[in-house]
């Protein structure tokens, strides 16, 4: 039916197709007539031809995506490499950017606005928050553009499109690895001794990576069809930053804000939010003094619950985001 279900324009342009007559036919292959009345679609089906723009099954899609893992990694490291080629300090910016970022927040909030009250080791605490949050923040920002900026690639080659948002998250992951090394150095410079709990940072960042991949896939689909999303994202991520206890502890918001005092459910919601969950876990792992010195009354949700949230967020967002992205697979080329 498909061949006939066409719009006004094609109905006018050749009404009697495919019952083709010799009149006006310029083709002259030594041809015999096809079965009369048979549509091209039926003809194609009879010869076992398949539609080339069709979306593969989920299993096949996953297999193909897995086959592209080397490309994802190569694409990501090439992007990281190419990102700073035009600047004089080159790759050094990978380290400088997060440090400068943390410096700004320290200056404004730590020194001028006194956010550090009640938090022992404020600098390491702040830097941990800023570095981990920016991993998620940057994944969202670049994920939203991952399809739109690569339309020419999408229109030139076959590959599972989920490759692109995933590769962009991997770019951010590679940057986050550099930032983590800097983070360890800063934390030690402020007198926190390495402890065994530091090893927990591995599963924490791994879970955060899965979560970021999921959210990257979600914003990639949103951004692919609604470009306006990337204009909105800076505002969303900034709100998210303040709401996730990156600069102020979520617990201290309870004391500061009358609004939260009246609506205590807000701080519950803030403590479930993934931005907070991964940061809080990382702080508890990296800064034993933070855990020890914080008043248990004010202290956050207990670690067991936090870990549960971390796993649930990672799995649900990744699986849901992946499936949702996959559903529009064949439409990404249209832009």
């Amino acid at each position: 039916m498909r061949g006939f279900g066409c719009n006004r324009l094609c109905a006018m342009s050749h009404p009697e197709r495919p019952a083709s007559g010799p009149t006006g036919s310029l083709t002259a292959p030594p041809a015999s007539q096809g079965k009369s009345g048979e549509s091209l679609t039926a003809f194609a089906a009879r010869h076992g031809l398949t539609q080339s723009a069709a979306r593969p099954s989920l299993g096949l899609y996953l297999t193909r995506l897995w086959g592209r893992r080397h490309f994802i990694w190569m694409f990501a490291s090439s992007k990281s490499k190419a990102m700073y080629t035009s600047s004089r300090l080159g790759q050094l910016w990978q380290v400088l950017t997060p440090i400068l970022n943390a410096g700004v927040y320290f200056l404004i909030f730590g020194l001028l606005l006194g956010a550090k009250e009640g938090i022992p080791d404020y600098v390491p605490w702040l830097v941990t928050g800023v570095f981990l949050f920016s991993f998620t923040q940057r994944s969202v920002t670049s994920g939203a553009k991952s399809v739109g900026t690569n339309l020419s690639l999408i229109r030139a080659l076959h590959f599972p499109r989920a490759t692109l948002p995933l590769a962009y998250t991997v770019v951010e992951f590679q940057q986050a690895m550099v930032a983590l090394a800097v983070l360890f150095a800063i934390v030690m410079a402020f007198g926190v001794m390495p402890a065994l709990t530091w090893l927990l940072i591995i599963p924490i960042v791994a879970l955060q990576l899965l979560f970021n991949m999921g959210i990257g896939l979600i914003v990639a689909r949103l951004g692919a069809f609604t470009r306006d999303i990337s204009q909105l994202i800076p505002f969303i991520t900034r709100t998210w930053l303040y709401a996730s206890g990156v600069i102020f502890s979520v617990a201290s918001l309870h004391d500061r804000s009358d609004f939260i005092k009246e609506n205590p459910w807000i701080s519950d919601v803030l403590e479930i939010n993934p931005g907070y969950v991964y940061i809080e876990l990382a702080r508890q792992a990296l800064l034993p003094p933070y855990v020890a010195q914080t008043d248990p009354q004010v202290a956050a949700t207990n670690p067991g619950t936090l870990w549960a949230y971390a796993v649930v967020w990672a799995v649900v967002v990744l699986v849901g985001g992946f499936y949702w992205f996959y559903r529009a697979e064949e439409r990404y080329g249209r832009g």
Partner: peptide
């Protein structure tokens, strides 16, 4: 009107 398709 495009030329009709002739199937070989």
């Amino acid at each position: 009107v495009p030329p009709p398709v002739v199937i070989d």
